[in-house]
């Protein structure tokens, strides 16, 4: 071994360690099998509904921003946690998805990345969903540094360094996981929740707790509504061909 090669050994060791720590490389989306079972759009139906919050909306605690002057400047009026976002009695930021019942349908994986941004020292959006093997582009729009720590349990966890504005890292998850908790290790109030699914039937409640799962084939499904603080509720829904149904979930505030 030459002297130069010997000098390179520590760097090689560090790179090897780094590679071992970042987990396996994302697998490319596999080509669909020839006999793939696909949803017939002409006979599909919808499930729409609302997530209701019963009782007084709990106050979101104020976040002390003294740890980072930039974040304090971005929110001169102060900042509160995003745990409870409610309007007209409906609860927002609830992840609603088909948990079970889809069987062996094949769904193409979108190649367009889902976007998760850090703006004003908080994640935007706070709750989101994406597909297994679909890219997620994580950006830093702030003039301060962030880490993006995905505390995945099924998929490999990671902790990205984003020291400057306009940095974007793209990651993928290779297995279904509801939910992957994201947090910034610099600003301990920053949390986001990402649902990773192997089908397209998911939504995040908006506009007073409303959601819609479009294009479902006929069948009986378990639909789950997940909230970061109030936990999860499920209910069974049976859809006929071209049928649309309304369902609702009710979470108690205390």
């Amino acid at each position: 071994m030459s002297r130069n090669q010997v000098r390179l050994l520590p760097a090689i060791a560090l790179l090897t360690l780094g590679a071992a720590c970042t987990g396996p490389a994302p697998e490319p989306a596999a080509a669909p099998p020839a006999d793939a079972k696909r949803v017939d759009a002409s006979t599909a139906g919808n499930v729409a509904g609302r997530v209701v919050l019963e009782g007084a909306v709990p106050a979101n605690p104020a976040i002390p921003l003294t740890a980072d002057p930039y974040c304090a400047r971005m929110h001169p009026g102060g900042l509160a946690a995003e745990t409870f976002v409610a309007a007209n009695g409906g609860l927002e930021n609830v992840f609603v998805y088909v948990k079970d019942g889809l069987g062996g349908y094949y769904f193409d994986v979108p190649t367009e990345p889902v976007k998760l941004d850090q703006v004003g020292c908080r994640y935007t959006p706070h709750v989101l969903g994406l597909r297994v093997k679909q890219p997620i582009a994580i950006s830093n729009s702030d003039e301060t540094l962030h880490t993006v720590h995905a505390l995945a349990q099924v998929n490999p966890a990671f902790n990205l360094s984003q020291p400057m504005q306009k940095i974007t890292n793209t990651k993928t998850f290779n297995a279904r996981e509801v939910m992957v908790h994201f947090k910034c290790e610099v600003h301990n109030w920053m949390h986001a929740y990402v649902g990773v699914l192997d089908h397209p039937y998911f939504a995040v409640t908006r506009d007073g707790g409303k959601f819609e799962l479009k294009g479902l084939p006929a069948g009986t499904y378990t639909v789950e509504a997940w909230h970061e603080k109030l936990g999860a509720q499920t209910q069974s829904v049976t859809l006929g061909e071209k049928e649309s149904k309304e369902i609702s979930f009710t979470f108690k505030a205390s």
Binding site: A67, D68, P69, Y70, T144, L145, T147, H149, N159, L160, S161, P163, E185, V186, H187, N188
Partner: peptide, 22 residues
Amino acid sequence: PDWPNTYGWFMFSFPMEKWVGG
């Protein structure tokens, strides 16, 4: 998140104004 560097900087040259939060 990184080591032995700090956000890509050599540890001893990491700017003090970036020592925020944790």
